[in-house]
Simulated assay, not measured.
Amino acid sequence: MGKTLIEIDEESLAVAQEACGTKTKKDTVNRALREVSDRVKRHEARMAAEHIAAAALDLEDLTDKAVYRPGRTAGDD
């Protein structure tokens, strides 16, 4: 873990400390960074799952009755 000197908005830090339930600046910043990182990873996983689902679900096949009712035609009643 690296050590970095940065300026932090004290008002935002106080809000983040309250939301995270942390006491120190270091704990607050690290917790906030982890939460953002986790959010990004969840979003990427959701996008990947949606891509997989979209590839597996071909809507044209679902709307083409000949595909899911083989052997039947519109006049077979």
Score class of each variant (00 low, 15 high):
residue 29 V to R: 01
residue 2 G to W: 00
residue 18 E to V: 10
residue 7 E to A: 05
residue 47 M to Q: 13
residue 60 E to K: 09
residue 77 D to Q: 07
residue 7 E to V: 06
residue 7 E to L: 08
residue 37 S to E: 13
residue 21 G to W: 11
residue 73 T to E: 09
residue 73 T to V: 15
residue 65 K to A: 10
residue 33 L to Q: 06
residue 44 E to M: 08
residue 66 A to V: 10
residue 76 D to T: 11
residue 46 R to L: 14
residue 75 G to Q: 11
residue 31 R to Y: 02
residue 25 K to A: 12
residue 2 G to E: 05
residue 59 L to S: 01
residue 41 K to L: 13
residue 37 S to W: 03
residue 9 D to H: 08
residue 49 A to F: 01
residue 18 E to Q: 15
residue 24 T to D: 06
residue 38 D to Y: 05
residue 5 L to H: 02
residue 68 Y to P: 03
residue 17 Q to P: 08
residue 34 R to N: 12
residue 73 T to D: 10
residue 66 A to Y: 11
residue 71 G to S: 11
residue 69 R to T: 10
residue 42 R to T: 14
residue 29 V to E: 00
residue 74 A to R: 14
residue 51 H to E: 15
residue 67 V to R: 09
residue 13 L to E: 06
residue 66 A to W: 04
residue 42 R to P: 06
residue 68 Y to M: 10
residue 61 D to Y: 01
residue 73 T to G: 15
residue 3 K to A: 04
residue 53 A to E: 11
residue 57 L to A: 05
residue 10 E to Y: 00
residue 60 E to S: 13
residue 56 A to R: 00
residue 56 A to S: 08
residue 41 K to G: 04
residue 29 V to W: 01
residue 3 K to L: 08
residue 5 L to C: 04
residue 34 R to H: 09
residue 43 H to F: 12
residue 59 L to Q: 00
residue 18 E to C: 06
residue 35 E to C: 03
residue 77 D to G: 12
residue 40 V to C: 01
residue 12 S to Q: 10
residue 59 L to D: 00
residue 10 E to I: 03
residue 22 T to P: 06
residue 76 D to I: 07
residue 9 D to I: 06
residue 31 R to A: 00
residue 61 D to Q: 07
residue 14 A to T: 07
residue 65 K to P: 12
residue 17 Q to N: 09
residue 33 L to P: 01
residue 19 A to D: 15
residue 21 G to Q: 11
residue 50 E to H: 05
residue 39 R to V: 02
residue 75 G to W: 13
residue 72 R to G: 03
residue 42 R to A: 13
residue 7 E to N: 12
residue 39 R to T: 10
residue 48 A to T: 09
residue 40 V to L: 09
residue 31 R to W: 02
residue 56 A to L: 11
residue 20 C to R: 02
residue 71 G to C: 14
residue 57 L to E: 06
residue 8 I to G: 00
residue 7 E to D: 11
residue 66 A to E: 11
residue 12 S to R: 09
residue 16 A to F: 07
residue 72 R to V: 15
residue 21 G to S: 09
residue 64 D to H: 03
residue 29 V to K: 01
residue 41 K to D: 15
residue 50 E to M: 12
residue 77 D to I: 14
residue 9 D to L: 04
residue 43 H to N: 07
